[in-house]
């Protein structure tokens, strides 16, 4: 009787250990109970909100728990997020950096802790820190936008350029792409080039200030759509919407509507949904064992104008 009791107990115990062993084996290679962190430069801009939410959504579809961290365009805040997510044992980071140089140390810290980082939209200036970087081909987009800009202005006129964050490579890739075209037309004069930090309110303030000294501008080239909307608001306030063309970059909802309504001339469509999806799927592959990744994958962008707006949707497709 007693022997039978012990035998049954041993069987139960063995079954329990077997169950635990099976569970732990299935967790080793799968995505169950794994967590992915989504660290976004700022959630104060709808484009980045879509980027973060799309990344989290795709990661959840792949079976991961996700948390979105907002760096508020602050590298110190971003560093705090990395410390916390490394300590919390996240399996991967889908990362939109605040600063191409300043964010490198955060990515390296994650790498040293064995946490792979997949950059989205913005790059970091290091080839061996991030596992892979999925970036918009901002330069080529602004080359195409520059050509459209030149033709719309008939190769002559005065314009203002509103730059994004000066520490972000996208700011300069866009500006240099644009100037690699426009600077070949000597009758197109840039009367002011100022940073508005990719921010709508700052863009409005900066353009209002610039128009005090240059009231006769013909166009404004903005490094993102938030600034394009800010610039447009400044033109509305000054009663100059009919005389000044506004060009943006992103393909955000409000600018796409403004293009449809003939308020803004053009933007460049870069799809946050597509970049987020690719990044989440790469992270999933990493967690499942893949190790050889292409260091940088640019995603093509397209110019959206009042003529071809019907071919596009805001924030683009996810493929």
């Amino acid at each position: 009787m007693l022997q039978s009791y012990y035998t049954d107990g041993l069987k139960v115990l063995l079954s329990f250990f077997l169950f635990i062993a099976i569970c732990s084996c299935s967790n080793t290679n799968g995505s169950e109970n794994k967590r992915i962190a989504v660290v976004i430069s700022t959630l104060n801009n709808p484009w980045f909100v879509v980027l973060g939410e799309s990344a989290a959504e795709r990661a959840q579809e792949l079976g991961y728990e996700t948390t979105i961290f907002d760096s508020q365009n602050n590298t110190s805040k971003e560093a705090e997020h990395f410390e916390n997510l490394i300590a919390a044992g996240y399996s991967a980071v889908l990362f939109n950096p605040t600063d191409s140089e300043g964010s490198v140390s955060n990515v390296k810290r994650a790498k040293a802790a064995g946490v792979p980082v997949f950059c989205m939209d913005r790059e970091v200036n290091s080839l061996d820190a991030a596992t892979s970087q999925i970036i918009s081909d901002s330069f080529s987009g602004c080359v195409a936008l520059g050509e459209y800009f030149v033709r719309q202005l008939n190769k002559k006129g005065k314009y203002v350029e509103l730059l994004g964050l000066v520490g972000d490579n996208n700011t300069w890739n866009r500006s240099k792409g644009f100037h690699s075209v426009v600077d070949h037309f000597p009758d197109l004069k840039m009367v002011a080039q100022q940073s508005a930090d990719f921010d709508r309110s700052k863009a409005m303030e900066v353009l209002e200030s610039v128009m005090q000294s240059h009231p006769d501008i013909d166009a404004v080239f903005c490094g993102n759509d938030a600034m394009a909307m800010g610039a447009y608001q400044a033109l509305v306030a000054a009663g100059k919407t009919e005389n000044v063309m506004v060009f943006g970059f992103d393909g955000a909802d409000d600018v796409m509507n403004a293009i449809s309504n003939k308020k803004i001339k053009a933007t460049v469509m870069q799809s946050p949904k597509h970049m987020a999806k690719v990044a989440a799927e790469l992270a999933d592959l990493y967690i499942k064992g893949k190790r050889d990744f292409i260091p940088k994958t640019p995603i093509a962008v397209e110019v959206v104008t009042q003529e071809n707006i019907h071919d596009f949707v805001a924030y683009g497709q996810d493929n």
Partner: peptide, 12 residues
């Protein structure tokens, strides 16, 4: 190859 350039602007 873009992957050989630390700063994409060099590649551009």
């Amino acid at each position: 190859n873009i992957g050989d350039y630390q700063n994409t602007m060099d590649f551009n």
